[in-house]
Every structure is written in structure tokens, then in C-alpha cells.
């Protein structure tokens, strides 16, 4: 049991017991988090199609992921949408943060509150309001509408990350660049942007993951041709168990763990 959490002073024995209980509970909750995922991955190697009794080891379901055309198409769609979303969200979020930082609008606070809304607004509300909006301006659903939806809920995360970084930035840097003869555009591009790079990378990772995983907004804004991977997975999971889905999920879990580890690494570089 991890019991390294001892306070600085020697705690009374009651506290030691409490500390132990907290640690045990944490371990239980982590078990609750990981056990289903372990089961899921384990069953992706199960030869049984019914996925209940263990009948032996197989890679067959991974092959069936690879052979599933609609699934691969959906994965390609997801990738295209997530990449486009990331680029747009980074541009929009960074510019927004910079403008809010540079020019102190009187309405700055209200704009910040407004920008926070897409982050906390229930996805179903964003989904249906975008759906009626696209219907009203008669924009047909497709890649464009999905990307618009994804950018809307992901760029505020970039904005917040960049804003935090901007606050810690020494304004003298940009002023020095200007004194040395740089144009404002050069100063922004050559001095400010490189300083913001860690926040931009963190924000981009966030936008990509959010877009890659998103189901609800996509549900209302995609057509059949632009269906993303989560949308397909949802359709498959509604029908019930499917070993191909287990294999796909296992791939997802490993990819996510790798991404989280990478993000943690980037964060460490930021320090």
C-alpha cells in the first residue's frame, strides 16, 4: 500500500489509520477504474464469439477490425475531423487569448464567460442547437458541420491554456523586439508565439483528443458519409457484445494511455 503520504510531523496513530483507509479506498477506486478495461482487453483475445466463456487465445478479432471497411472509413473520418479541428481550434484559441490579453476590452470578462460556455454546456444542447442552426441556414450536414461543432467546444480549452501562459509572460520581451526594430507582426510571430509553444501544444493535444472521442455533438451534426469512429462504435455497442469492438477498444485504450503519457511528458517540459 502506498503510505508515503505521511505529513511532515509525526501523525497521531488515529491519523495513521485514516491515512491507511484513504490509501485502501484509493486502491479500490483505481481497481474499479481499471478492472473493466482489463476485462475488455482480455476478452479481445478470446476465441469465443459469444465473449463469455474463455475458449482460447486468438488474434482473429484484430484481423476483423482491419477487415471492417466501414470501421476503417470511420477511423479515417475521425482522423481528418480531429486534425482539422485541432488546427482551427489552435488558431482561434491562440488569437482569441492574445487579443483578450493584449487589448483589455471593457467587455473582456463577459467575453471570457461566453467563451467558457461551450466547455461546460451539455453536449446534447450544443448538438441540437447546431442542428437547428444548420437546418435554418440550409447547410447540409457533413464534414464541415461536424468540424464546426468540434471547433466550438474545443477551442476554449486552447484559449484557456494560452491565456494562462500569456499571464506569466514578460511583456518586456515583446517590447524589446519592437525596440530592436521588429514590426508588431514579426514580434508576435518570432517572440510571442515561440514563448507560447508549450501551451499551444498542450491545447492542441486537448483539442485533438476531445474531437477524436466526441460522440454527442457529432451525433447531431454528421451525415452517413462523415460518421466518425465513436458514432460507429456507439451503433455497434447498442446491438450488444461484439468481439471486433473489444479488439478496437483495446487498440483505443493503448493509444489513449500513450497519448496521456505523452501529454504528461509535454507538461514536464513546460515546467
Amino acid at each position: 500500500m502506498p503510505s508515503t503520504a505521511a505529513p511532515r510531523l509525526r501523525p497521531p496513530s488515529g491519523l495513521r489509520l485514516l491515512q491507511f483507509g484513504l490509501g485502501g479506498w484509493t486502491a479500490l477506486v483505481l481497481l474499479f477504474f481499471y478492472l473493466p478495461i482489463v476485462v475488455l482487453v482480455a476478452y479481445s483475445f478470446n476465441a469465443s464469439r459469444l465473449n463469455v466463456v474463455w475458449e482460447g487465445f486468438t488474434f482473429e478479432w484484430y484481423r476483423s477490425v482491419w477487415a471492417n471497411g466501414p470501421l476503417l472509413q470511420a477511423a479515417r473520418n475521425s482522423l481528418v475531423i480531429a486534425c482539422a479541428t485541432t488546427v482551427l481550434a489552435v488558431v482561434l484559441g491562440t488569437l482569441g487569448a492574445w487579443l483578450l490579453h493584449r487589448y483589455r476590452f471593457r467587455a473582456g470578462r463577459s467575453i471570457e464567460t461566453l467563451a467558457a460556455i461551450p466547455m461546460v454546456m451539455p453536449e446534447i444542447l450544443m448538438g441540437i442547437s447546431l442542428l437547428v442552426f444548420f437546418a435554418t441556414i440550409s447547410l447540409p450536414l457533413g464534414f464541415g458541420t461536424v468540424i464546426i461543432g468540434h471547433v466550438t467546444f474545443s477551442f476554449p480549452f486552447v484559449l484557456i491554456a494560452v491565456q494562462a501562459r500569456l499571464r506569466g509572460l514578460d511583456p518586456a520581451l515583446e517590447e524589446a523586439a519592437l525596440d530592436l526594430g521588429a514590426t508588431p507582426a514579426q514580434a508576435f510571430w518570432l517572440v510571442t508565439i515561440p514563448c507560447l509553444r508549450p501551451a499551444i501544444v498542450a491545447g492542441a493535444l486537448m483539442a485533438f483528443t476531445l474531437s477524436w472521442d466526441e460522440l454527442i455533438v457529432t451525433f447531431f451534426t454528421a451525415d452517413a458519409a462523415s460518421a466518425t469512429l465513436p458514432l460507429r462504435v456507439f451503433g455497434m455497442a447498442k446491438v450488444g457484445l461484439n468481439p471486433t469492438l473489444n479488439a478496437l477498444s483495446a487498440i483505443f485504450v493503448v493509444a489513449t494511455a500513450a497519448l496521456v503519457a505523452f501529454a504528461a511528458y509535454v507538461r514536464r517540459l513546460n515546467r
Partner: peptide
């Protein structure tokens, strides 16, 4: 320990909720 445990909470946080829900169907 804090960083290690935090990472352990982050992985499910970032794993698609869809997949995590699907895992429970098996169980």
C-alpha cells in the same frame, strides 16, 4: 506518488467514455 496516481486517474479520464461503458456490458 502524487504524479503517478494522478496519471492513473488521467488515463480513464481520457479514455473514450463509450469504450468504458461498453466494457461494463461484458461484465
Amino acid at each position: 506518488w502524487r504524479n503517478r496516481l494522478l496519471l492513473l486517474v488521467m488515463v480513464p479520464f481520457w479514455t473514450s467514455f463509450l469504450i468504458r461503458t461498453y466494457a461494463w456490458i461484458t461484465i
